[in-house]
Nucleic acid binder design. Structure first.
Length: 641
DNA sequence: AGGCTCGGCCAC
DNA sequence: AAACGTGGCCGAGCCT
C-alpha cells in the first residue's frame, strides 16, 4: 500500500493506493464506514476519446471529504464493480457524463443503473454562476471551483502533472495520461484529491443551492443530463463510404482554388497577411477592420469583392476579384472537409458511430453545446455534410423544430398585446408584423414591396431577440440604414411592450445582484456594460428550458431511445420506416406546450435515410444520393447500392 | 515544440 | 442614444 497525506482547508487527508489483496480490504472497510454518505467518484483514463480503439481506464477513485481510495482498475476491477453495483450508494462526480460513459463502456457499471445515483458538481456550479473564468465567473473546472469554494490553496495538481508529462515522459497534455506510471506519486495524489474535492464541493455548493431555492432546478438538470448522456452513448451512424468520398471531393475543391490563389501570390489562403497584400496590390480598397485594428478579410469583405451575395450568387455589380473568389472557396471547402467530414471519420468507433460530447448545461443562458464533432453547426444551406449522418438500418431520420420559439417566448414574457395578437393570428408571423408595422401603406404596396417589408420585419424581430441595432440589421439585410431605422421606429411603436420589458429587466437587475431571473428560476448574471443583453438572456434561456422540458416529457413517454440530438430549438431523431410518420407526430405533440398562455408549436418532419434528406438531398435511399437539380452547385454522390 | 490568442466562420 | 446573443473549432502566428 502506498499512502499519501495532503492538507485540504486545514484538515489532514489520506490518499490510499492499494497494491495487494490485503491492502484493498481497507477499501471495503472504508465503504462500510460511509454507508450513509454521498462519496466522490472519478476515473483516470488514457485520453478523452472514450469510444476510440486505444481507450483504456487506468484508475477509478472513490473518496470521502478526508479519505481517498485510488484503485488500479486492471488489478481491482472486482472491487470497483461491486462498489458501483451497490444500489444503496450515491456518488458525486465532477462532470459525471464522462465517468459514467467510461464505466459503462468498460463494463464496470451500466449507465442506466449508476447514472441516476450520481450527483454532478458541475451542474451545481453552473446554477450558482454560469460564467466562465474569463467572463469574471467561477468557471466550471474542478480546480478553480475548489479554490473558490473549498480551499484557497487548492493545489493545481493538473498543472504539476503536465510538467511531469513533459519532463519525465516526453509527452504532451494529451498523450501523458496514457504514459505516466500508474503509481507515480503525483498522479496518484492528483487522482485522489479529485474525489476529495468533489465531495467537499458537493457540500459547499449543495448548501448554496438549497439556500437559494435552486434544489428543484438542480434535480431537474440531473435528469436532463442523464438523457443527453444516453444520447452520447447511443451516438449516430456515419455513412463511411459517402463521407470518405466527400472528403476527397472537398479536398480537391480546396486544392483547385488554392492553386488559383497561388497564381496571384497568395501561397497560403489561410494567411490573412498574404491576402491583404495581394488585394491591396490589385488596387482593392476597403475600410472594414478587425478588433485588433488590422484590415479585415472575412466574408463580409471578400464576398462582395468576388461579386457574390450572402448566398454566393452573382450580384453582377462588378468584375469579381479572382483572389477574393479563390480564397473564400478554398477556405470553405477546406473547413468543411477538415472540421466536419474528416472529423466524423476520425471520431467514429468500430461500428461506424460517432459519440459527440453533449454538454446539456453549457452556455451562460444554459443553452446546450455539442462538440467532437460540432453537430449543432453543420452547414445547413447545403445537404452535403449532413448527408454523412444516416439512420440505423430500417430507420428514417426525423426532426421536429419549434416554430419561432424565441419570438413566442418574447411575446409571452413581455405581454405585448400586438405581438401576442400576431402569434395568435396563426398567420405567417413576419407577414403579420409587417402588416402592423406598415399599416397605412400596406394596401397600396406591391408584392415585392411587401416581401421586402416582411424580410425587414423578420430581421428587426431577430434584432429584438439578440439586442441588435440598426447598423447590424442593415448589414445583414442589405437594406439602406435609413429604411432600417424607420422600420425599427415603427416596430417599436407597434410593439411597445418589448422595450418596456427590457427596461423592466434592467431596472430589476440594478437593484439585485445585477442578474436576471428566468421563468424557470435560473439566475443569469449580466455584464455591467452589456445590460441590454438582459432580454436576450431570458428569452434564449427560456427557449432552452422549454426544449429541455420536452426531453424529459419524451423520456417519460418512453420515447427517448429514438432521440439522437438536441439542436437548440429542434430535436433530431430516428424511427423504423413504417412508424416514422406516427413517431414524429407524437414527438411534436410532446414538444408542443403552452407558455404563459402562448402556444409553443412545433413542426414535425420525416427527413429520410440521412440527415441531408431534410436539406434537399433528393434520393438517399439504398445508399445513393443524387445531385439536387435545384441547386446544381451542390456536390453529387452516388455509389453502387 | 507545445500552449496560447486572434481572426475567421459554421450553427441556432 | 445605441448597443446582435450563445456556442465549437480551425490555422496562423506569437510566446515560452
Amino acid at each position: 500500500m502506498k499512502t499519501f497525506t495532503h492538507r485540504v482547508s486545514g484538515t489532514e487527508c489520506l490518499i490510499h493506493f492499494p497494491e495487494t489483496d490485503n491492502d484493498v480490504a481497507g477499501f471495503t472497510e472504508f465503504l462500510a464506514r460511509n454507508t450513509n454518505r454521498v462519496l466522490g467518484l472519478d476515473t483516470e483514463t488514457t485520453g478523452l476519446h472514450i469510444y476510440g480503439a486505444e481507450f483504456r481506464c487506468r484508475l477509478v477513485q472513490f473518496g470521502s471529504e478526508t479519505e481517498a481510495w485510488v484503485l488500479n482498475v486492471e488489478r481491482f476491477s472486482l472491487y470497483v464493480r461491486a462498489a458501483l453495483a451497490d444500489r444503496t450508494k450515491q456518488w458525486v462526480a465532477h462532470n459525471a457524463p464522462f465517468d459514467l460513459l467510461v464505466l459503462d463502456r468498460l463494463g464496470l457499471a451500466s449507465l442506466a443503473d449508476l447514472g441516476p445515483r450520481v450527483f454532478d458538481t458541475k451542474i451545481l456550479a453552473h446554477l450558482c454562476d454560469p460564467r466562465m473564468e474569463h467572463e469574471g465567473g467561477t468557471g466550471l473546472g474542478l480546480k478553480p471551483l475548489s479554490a473558490i469554494y473549498v480551499d484557497q490553496n487548492a493545489e493545481d495538481t493538473q498543472a504539476g502533472l503536465y510538467k511531469i508529462f513533459r519532463s519525465e515522459y516526453k509527452a504532451t497534455k494529451e498523450t501523458g495520461w496514457a504514459l505516466i506510471d500508474i503509481d507515480h506519486p503525483v498522479y496518484v495524489r492528483y487522482a485522489g484529491l479529485d474525489v476529495i474535492y468533489a465531495c467537499r464541493l458537493l457540500r459547499e455548493l449543495g448548501t448554496l443551492i438549497k439556500g437559494n431555492g435552486l434544489s428543484k432546478l438542480a434535480h431537474w438538470e440531473h435528469r436532463v443530463q442523464l438523457i443527453t448522456t444516453a444520447q452520447m452513448k447511443r451516438g449516430l451512424l456515419i455513412d463511411v463510404g459517402y463521407t470518405t468520398n466527400l472528403v476527397g471531393e472537398l479536398t480537391a475543391e480546396a486544392d483547385k482554388f488554392k492553386d488559383v490563389a497561388a497564381r496571384y501570390g497568395v501561397e497560403n489562403v489561410n494567411s490573412n497577411a498574404q491576402i491583404i497584400a495581394a488585394l491591396q496590390g490589385m488596387g482593392e480598397e476597403w475600410s472594414e477592420k478587425t478588433d485588433g485594428g488590422a484590415p479585415s478579410v472575412g466574408k463580409d469583405v471578400l464576398l462582395p469583392m468576388a461579386d457574390l451575395d450572402r448566398d454566393w450568387e452573382r450580384i453582377e455589380a462588378r468584375d469579381p476579384n479572382p483572389v477574393a473568389d479563390a480564397v473564400i472557396r478554398s477556405k470553405r471547402a477546406g473547413k468543411w472537409s477538415k472540421s466536419y467530414a474528416q472529423a466524423m471519420l476520425d471520431r467514429r468507433d468500430s461500428n461506424d458511430r460517432i459519440h459527440p460530447d453533449v454538454k446539456a448545461l453549457a452556455a451562460r443562458t444554459a443553452r446546450m453545446s455539442i462538440s467532437n464533432p460540432p453537430l449543432q453547426q453543420l452547414p445547413s444551406g447545403d445537404w452535403t455534410i449532413r448527408r454523412a449522418i444516416i439512420a440505423d438500418p430500417g430507420n428514417l431520420i426525423v426532426a421536429c423544430d419549434y416554430s419561432q420559439v424565441e419570438m413566442r417566448v418574447l411575446a409571452a414574457l413581455s405581454g405585448d398585446p400586438a405581438l401576442l395578437a400576431a402569434i395568435r393570428s396563426g398567420e405567417d408571423m413576419h407577414t403579420f408584423t409587417a402588416k402592423l408595422v406598415y399599416a397605412a401603406a400596406w394596401p397600396t404596396m406591391s408584392d415585392s414591396q411587401k416581401a421586402r417589408a416582411r424580410k425587414l420585419c423578420k430581421a428587426v424581430g431577430f434584432g429584438k431577440v439578440y439586442g441588435g441595432g440598426a447598423v447590424t440589421i442593415a448589414k445583414q439585410t442589405g437594406a439602406p440604414i435609413a429604411d432600417v431605422k424607420v422600420a425599427i421606429a415603427a416596430y417599436d411603436k407597434t410593439f411597445p411592450g418589448i422595450k418596456a420589458y427590457g427596461r423592466r429587466l434592467q431596472r430589476a437587475a440594478n437593484f439585485g445582484g445585477h442578474e436576471v431571473v428566468t421563468p424557470f428560476g435560473r439566475h443569469l448574471p449580466l455584464d455591467r456594460d452589456r445590460a441590454y443583453a438582459a432580454t436576450n438572456y431570458v428569452v434564449q434561456s427560456t427557449a432552452r428550458d422549454l426544449l429541455a422540458k420536452a426531453l424529459i416529457d419524451i423520456d417519460e413517454a418512453g420515447l427517448s431511445d429514438h432521440i439522437l440530438l438536441p439542436v437548440h430549438d429542434e430535436l433530431i431523431g430516428q424511427a423504423p420506416i413504417a412508424d416514422a410518420k406516427d413517431f414524429v407526430h407524437e414527438l411534436g405533440r410532446l414538444m408542443d406546450s403552452t407558455f404563459k398562455g402562448v402556444e409553443i408549436t412545433s413542426d414535425p418532419e420525416v427527413y429520410g435515410e440521412s440527415w441531408g434528406a431534410g436539406y434537399g438531398c433528393k434520393r438517399d435511399d439504398a445508399g445513393t444520393c443524387r445531385v439536387d437539380t435545384d441547386h446544381p452547385h451542390h456536390y453529387g454522390y452516388a455509389h453502387a447500392a
